[in-house]
């Protein structure tokens, strides 16, 4: 319960600042450099966690983050201050991740392995505690679409409607994916216990 409680506090803190994000976005659209810095500082940790916990290595997650900010910059005129910021940001983050994934898959399909790749332990970069290792292992066992929903709901602390907006789907579909993910998780825990 300890980790659950600290997570709640952290998510509350992040959510408390959300009302100010719309104002920052409006200033960003007007070309305010200070607003850009504040936005980058406040949103990057969430985005990084999203990329890192969607199965990317630390270095890749940083690349995704940079690419994502470039896309956010190019699409900043498509935001309206009357709408929530997080789904808009995460919809772009999602496209960044999917495009990078597709690009990598194409590149890998053309590459010819001449020797065994070095055993670089991705997680060693993070040096994660055992509990988080377990958390990531369980996430990896979920299908891609379910993992994405769970990461947004439970790691990024978004609501069902925000996840539906970010993933271009409906609230019902998000609920269904979350339900299936929980069922799979229960099954895994049942096997492990």
């Amino acid at each position: 319960m300890v980790s659950g409680t600290s997570a709640t506090e952290m998510q509350r803190e992040e959510r408390a600042g959300e009302s100010g994000l719309a104002g920052l976005m409006a200033r960003y659209q007007k070309g305010d450099a200070a607003a850009v810095e504040e936005l980058v500082q406040s949103l990057s940790p969430r985005l990084f966690r999203y990329f890192a916990q969607s199965g990317a290595a630390a270095s890749d997650a940083e690349d995704f983050l940079q690419d994502c900010w470039v896309r956010i910059h190019q699409a900043r005129h498509t935001y309206r201050s009357t709408e929530p910021v997080l789904p808009w940001i995460f919809a772009i983050a999602r496209h960044t991740r999917l495009d990078s994934y597709r690009r990598r898959r194409r590149r890998e399909s053309r590459e010819v392995l001449v020797s065994e790749p070095p055993e670089t332990a991705i997680r060693a970069v993070y040096s994660l505690p055992e509990r988080q290792e377990e958390f990531l292992r369980m996430l990896e066992a979920l299908p891609e679409s379910q993992r994405e929903v769970i990461v947004m709901l439970k790691v990024s602390g978004m609501t069902l409607e925000e996840v539906a907006r970010a993933t271009s789907s409906t609230v019902g579909s998000v609920k269904q994916k979350a339900h299936r993910a929980y069922a799979k998780l229960r099954e895994l825990l049942q096997k492990g216990a």
């Binding site: 980058v40 500082q41 990057s44 916990q53 983050l65 958390f135 790691v155």
Partner: peptide
């Protein structure tokens, strides 16, 4: 625990954020 869990240890490097900011 798993459901209430949110990883707080993974964070990006300050240089990355500085690079993003200067690019934008």
């Amino acid at each position: 625990e798993w459901i209430g869990h949110a990883s707080s240890s993974s964070s990006c490097r300050p240089e990355t954020l500085a690079s993003v900011h200067s690019r934008l």
